[in-house]
Design a protein around this nucleic acid. Structure first.
Length: 940
RNA sequence: GCCCGGGUGGUGGAAUUGGUAGACACGCAAGACUUAAAAUCUUGUGACCAUUUGGUCGUGCGGGUUCAAGUCCCGCCCCGGGUACCA
């Protein structure tokens, strides 16, 4: 018997799999399908990130498991190769993005191959591949050519809308739109083509508009809302400003309700669903019109609390609100316009970081409260957001904290409309209130008051029920080079789609972004375009999430050049059954793909409305940073290290320590033992003469070695993995020293797949030892009939492993394997047939070693085609059956089969011990707990 | 602030969903083999007393329900994530 040599067998089986195309899959209507998908990576240049393999291993295990169970498994991989990260890397290294992308992909592939994944590489896709992005562009054209009918709740061809306008005008159209328009058919038919196009833009699902956008000068592009965090760009952390620009947007807001409702159909974590719900942000309320003194126009506000209308003591407009220009009185003009100007110059971040005092100015005008005709001053303040609701609010200082603070700041009246509530220090925003000073609703509760005010205002034609969503349309233009070009050209300022031929990304000399926002594609000459129509090509490119919003469909039929995928294949593979990836894509990618899926459903391209049935979020893997505490003060000229537990504002310097030396790495009690201190000193010889202050003694290394139990506690901080902190672990290095199978099992063994954890390598020897033990055990197996004892272990293992994989509890599966092997090891001998079954169980986790075993067993086909073993309960000595007897009512017993007790014997046993107290009977069964009239449980 | 998660030995983590808490692994200790080391194997390992056969306390803290609570309910504390002038 040779020793377990992972390096040798892993490369052997990897080349076998790739030569035999073991994992390529074809559609087969006679077989049930499973679609297991990983979030495909950005090939960013730093190679695979340590967190990545975690999810890939999990999905690979699941895919291999299902393949054993006889499913036709689609398990593909590809690259999200367009977009900012790829381009940033190219810019940093001064190479063309196409080149660096190619290089990075090769590197990724090499790393992926090393881990033995069962991907069908025949189906690989790249979003930057023209054969792929042809269909991204195609979907864009469909969006451009569609509008959203709110009556039937689906997208429809724009031609049907035009036909309606021609015959009925805007009447009877309830569409998702930027602005509500009204016109007659006669008016419509008299419009110029430019005007018609303007009107249609108002309805198209992909539309051009002049709007305030998140402009990031450093990246030279605009960003979608979810790409901006805390006023800076998510990627790179550069400041983001508000800028008015002509941009393409996608009308995702049309789908807000469906995106919200259909969350009930999918199996995502509650926290992720909650994030999506918050992002969609549905709120039901009332639009209320306030008349303005001496003005024709009315001021419309949105509120969810019409019940507090008697508490309105001022109105507030966003500085961008168009009424600000009209209603500001002449004496206030100078002040108000200066304020508006000041605010417009602020970046998003500055507006948010408005710590403490609210700002604002009075416009000089007054609104009329429609409920009691009271005169209310109208103010302008930056705390009101232009983009939400109507950009104006009715301010109720008694019920809203922001309004309260504003009122305090500017000495505006705070009307108390709540019975028995003190408003001395803050507003009262809870809804458990009884009203006062509110003639129509005095004494009522929240529900009744809201209903009454709503009815009153609707009757007066001053109010209208309205559902508002926080979800904003997604900006779809990027002023960057490395993205899908729009299939759009302009003629006389009217955009037209290009359908006759695919628009390819033209070559340009310089692909760097510009600071002023002119797209790099502007550098392309007329002849650089493969197709050039009209006066001007669209020069923006699509954002990174365009290609990733539908890629899961292309894997189904990656080489189709007639359609994005054939309907048979789309129908066969259907939804992704298991989608594995990080939770950081909660509101970006996951929302956009859900949106596109629904749109493609409306088009009739696909037959399902949700792309991902089940989402598994793998936890992030961070790195703990371990440092020794070096006192600034030396002792007798020698440096002194002290325990991290002893430092309190004392002067000390952190000396980062290589994590290989640290015990309990990443925990509160991380420490170095004398032997490890010795290693540390070898690594950092400049501390050769250092002293270590432990339990009030100053000891040198030599002295410490006489006290092997002494511990020097290290300072642990949680952070990133970085070479700078000596806390990186390279997955490839682990493959080198332990093998991919050990790494796969170990990553699963670390803990629940969805939990965040710092990476550590502390326990890897246990997993490695397990595989070695398995190797030995296998080679000791004899060609004999399996004993009952070993079968009992096997069948328990099959049961537990199958159930746990089904529940994505991969860490406990590895433990179960270990228990089985340990128990078999205690037996005098083991049969080959038992091992044969075990090898199948092991193969999703450790495919290479399992394949090696399978080969040795003389089976020529690859192990992944072997059926998953089934278990037989009769081998479970501890198996139980339910044994109902009557005892002060109905009770349930679980009695071991092995004891083969008769009914009388059990009853006798139980009745003999009949007590009011629970009791334990250890003679016939291990434990019986009996309570008269309640459940009795007999534990083994 | 609000919304989700979560808190179990020295460490990572189990616990059939209300039924012997601490599986499995790491670490540590002792022993076997060895000239020695590595590797491997065996044993022990929540804490505190008793040192045998036993006892007491133990799942962030304080209450409660129950024959029985890590698990359910109420009130706190702490950690992680998301989100925010959304009216």
């Amino acid at each position: 018997m040779t020793n377990y040599n992972p390096k040798e067998i892993e490369s052997k089986w990897q080349s076998f799999w790739s030569k035999e195309k073991t994992f390529s899959v074809v559609e087969d209507p006679n077989k049930k399908k499973i679609y297991v998908l990983d979030m495909f990576p950005y090939p960013s240049g730093e190679g695979l990130h340590v967190g990545h393999p975690l999810g890939y291993i999990a999905s690979d295990i699941f895919a291999r498991f299902k393949r054993h169970q006889g499913y036709n498994v689609l398990h593909p991989m590809g690259y999200d190769s367009f977009g900012l990260p790829a381009e940033q890397y190219a810019i940093q290294t001064g190479q063309h993005p196409a080149l660096t992308t190619e290089k990075n992909i090769n590197r990724y592939r090499q790393q992926l191959d090393r881990l033995g994944f069962a991907y069908d590489w025949e189906r690989e896709i790249r979003t930057s591949d023209p054969y792929y992005y042809k269909w991204t562009q195609w979907i864009f054209i469909q969006l451009f050519d569609s509008w959203y009918d709110l009556v039937e709740n689906k997208a429809k061809p724009i031609t049907s809308l035009i036909a309606h306008f021609e015959s009925e005008g805007s009447q009877d159209i309830n569409a998702s739109c930027t602005q509500k328009l009204t016109f007659t058919p006669k008016q419509w038919n008299s419009y110029s083509s430019e005007k018609k196009e303007d009107v249609l833009m108002n309805y198209r699902l992909a539309y051009l508009s002049m709007s305030m956008v998140n402009w990031c000068p450093e990246l030279g592009t605009v960003l979608a809302n979810d790409e901006v965090k805390d006023g800076v760009s998510e990627r790179g952390g550069y400041p983001v400003e508000q800028k008015e620009m002509m941009q393409w947007s996608l009308r995702i807001s049309a789908y807000a309700q469906r995106l919200l409702d259909d969350l009930d159909q999918v199996d995502f974590t509650t926290s992720l669903k909650e994030q999506q719900r918050n992002w969609i942000g549905k709120s039901e309320g009332l639009l209320i019109n306030f008349e303005i003194e001496h003005q024709k126009e009315e001021l419309q506000v949105f509120t969810t609390r019409p019940d507090t209308i008697y508490g309105v003591s001022f109105m507030t407009l966003a500085p961008e609100h168009k009424l600000v220009q009209h209603i500001t009185t002449s004496e206030k003009k100078k002040e108000v316009f200066a304020y508006v100007d000041l605010i417009s110059k602020k970046t998003e971040r500055e507006r948010q970081a408005n710590n403490g005092k609210p700002t604002g100015v009075f416009t000089g005008s007054y609104a009329i409260n429609p409920i009691n005709n009271e005169k209310i001053p109208i103010w302008v303040s930056e705390y009101v957001l232009h983009g939400y609701g109507t950009g104006a609010v009715m301010a109720v200082p008694s019920g809203d904290q922001r309004d309260y603070e504003f009122a305090k700041q500017f000495n505006i009246e705070i009307k108390n409309i709540f019975e028995g509530i003190s408003l001395d220090s803050s507003a009262y925003s809870e809804k458990d209130v009884i009203y006062k000073n509110s003639p129509e609703i005095n004494g009522l509760n929240y529900v009744d008051a809201t209903a009454k005010i709503t009815t009153l205002l609707v009757q007066k034609k001053k109010g209208r029920k309205k559902i508002n969503f926080r979800l904003r349309d997604a900006i779809f233009s990027r002023q960057r080079y490395w993205g899908e070009p729009f299939p759009i050209y302009y003629k006389d300022n009217i955009p037209y789609t290009i359908k006759e031929e695919q628009v390819l990304l033209p070559k340009v000399d310089k692909y760097l972004p510009t600071r002023d926002g002119r797209p790099p594609l502007g550098r392309a000459k007329k002849e650089d375009w493969n197709i050039f129509l009209g006066d001007q090509m669209e020069l923006n490119t699509m954002p990174g999430w365009a290609g990733s919003s539908w890629y899961f469909l292309r894997y189904m039929d990656p080489k189709n050049d007639k359609k994005l995928a054939s309907s048979e294949k789309l129908n066969y593979w259907n939804q992704v059954d298991l989608y594995v990836g990080g939770a950081e894509h909660a509101v970006g990618h996951l929302l956009y793909s859900r949106f596109w899926t629904k749109f493609l459903f409306d088009l009739g391209v696909i037959s399902f409305q949700e792309p991902f049935k089940k989402l598994l979020n793998q936890g992030m893997i961070g790195g703990a940073i371990e440092s020794l505490c070096l006192k600034k003060e030396k002792k007798e000229g020698r440096p002194v290290f002290v325990c991290s537990t002893k430092i309190d504002n004392e002067d000390f310097v952190k000396i980062p320590c290589h994590i290989d030396f640290v015990s309990d790495y990443g925990s509160k009690t991380s420490h170095l033992l004398p032997k490890q201190i010795q290693k540390f000193i070898k690594w950092r010889p400049e501390f050769k003469h250092a002293l270590f202050e432990i339990s009030n003694q100053f000891l040198s290394v030599e002295e410490l070695l006489n006290h092997p139990e002494k511990k020097l506690f290290t300072l642990t901080e949680h952070g990133k993995m970085s070479k700078r902190y000596f806390n990186t672990i390279d997955p490839e290095k682990i493959c080198d020293s332990y093998g991919a199978d050990t790494l796969r099992c170990y990553e699963m063994f670390l803990g629940p797949i969805d939990e965040h954890k710092p990476w550590n390598v502390n326990g890897i020897s246990g997993v490695s030892g397990f595989l070695k033990k398995t190797w030995t055990l296998f080679h000791q197996a004899k060609k004999v009939a399996p004993s009952n004892e070993e079968l009992k272990i096997l069948h328990k293992t099959i049961k537990k492993v199958s159930e746990d994989i089904e529940n994505y509890s991969f860490n406990t599966v590895v433990s179960t394997f270990m228990i089985a092997v340990n128990e078999w090891n205690k037996l005098s001998q083991i049969s080959l047939t038992t091992m044969e079954n075990f090898v199948v169980l092991l193969s999703p986790f450790a495919p290479h070693i399992s394949e090696e075993f399978w080969f040795k067993l003389g089976n020529k086909t690859s192990i992944s085609t072997v059926p998953w073993p089934s278990y037989n309960e009769s081998y479970f000595v501890e198996s139980t059956y339910e044994y109902p007897i009557s005892f002060n009512g109905k009770m349930r017993f679980k009695i071991p089969l092995s004891l083969s007790l008769t009914k009388e014997e059990v009853e006798k046993e139980v009745l003999k011990n009949k007590k009011t107290e629970p009791f334990i009977a250890e003679k016939t069964v291990k434990r019986i707990i009996v309570v008269p009239g309640k459940i009795v449980n007999i534990v083994l």
